[in-house]
């Protein structure tokens, strides 16, 4: 969807403000937001693409005025509501008022290290050969779906070169909506600065995205 998350090429947000690498959190609530988001995700009720879509579905003005942990917290509340795990009344009161629903898993402290170290594999076995080879010239499609997609607007309808064939990966556009993983070949596609940004673009700039096969056509 063309939400506020799709920021590439926008202007007017001011300078980037560096911060020291020893600074992990700015406030205690950020730690708690991180922890509840990861622990709730570990229930296995939604997948990473579902949650990304819930975050980008925040109203644009709200998304753009929130810090990232605030986006996480608001999206977590919305996801829990959408899946019927909490009620609006509970969120208003700040306490449980109804019995829990059964969930697939509850992450225990003893399993945290193991779970984080395992991660989640998104690569799947190939069932068909890749349509494009390294070095192929491709063009990204132009589409504006209302559903989740990982093809940013600035890279739609652009000619690029396949720099790497990464393997077959879960397709977020369907996985986000629990319509199945429908794995596809994933490519790193490189574009020149002038192809993306036209007149006045830095000729020494190239930008790549990682694009699923259905985002691409031969050019």
């Amino acid at each position: 969807m063309n939400g506020a998350q799709d920021l590439g090429g926008m202007m007017g947000f001011g300078p980037v403000v560096p911060e020291p690498e020893t600074l992990r959190f700015h406030a205690d609530w950020e730690k708690r937001a991180l922890a509840v988001t990861l622990a709730a995700g570990a229930m296995g009720v939604w997948n990473i693409d579902t949650m990304r879509h819930t975050r980008e579905s925040l109203p644009p003005a709200e998304y753009l005025s929130a810090s990232y942990y605030e986006i996480w917290a608001k999206a977590l509340a919305n996801q829990l509501l959408a899946d019927g795990l909490v009620s609006r009344e509970e969120l208003r009161e700040g306490h449980a008022q109804e019995p829990p629903r059964p969930v697939p898993r509850v992450l225990q402290a003893a399993d945290v290290a193991k779970t984080l170290a395992a991660g989640t594999q998104y690569e799947r076995a190939a069932e068909a050969p890749a349509a494009f080879a390294r070095g192929a010239t491709v063009r990204t499609k132009v589409f504006h779906p209302t559903h989740h997609t990982r093809l940013p607007r600035y890279a739609r309808g652009k000619r690029g070169v396949v720099e790497a064939v990464r393997g077959v990966f879960v397709f977020p556009d369907t996985n986000a909506h629990r319509q199945g993983e429908h794995p596809q070949w994933l490519y790193t596609v490189r574009f020149t600065g002038p192809e993306l940004w036209g007149e006045g673009a830095d000729p020494g700039l190239t930008v790549s995205i990682d694009a699923w096969e259905s985002y691409l056509e031969a050019a």
Partner: peptide
């Protein structure tokens, strides 16, 4: 300058 936009799980 080569920019890598992490749009997938790489």
């Amino acid at each position: 300058i080569r920019v890598w936009d992490s749009t997938a799980e790489i």
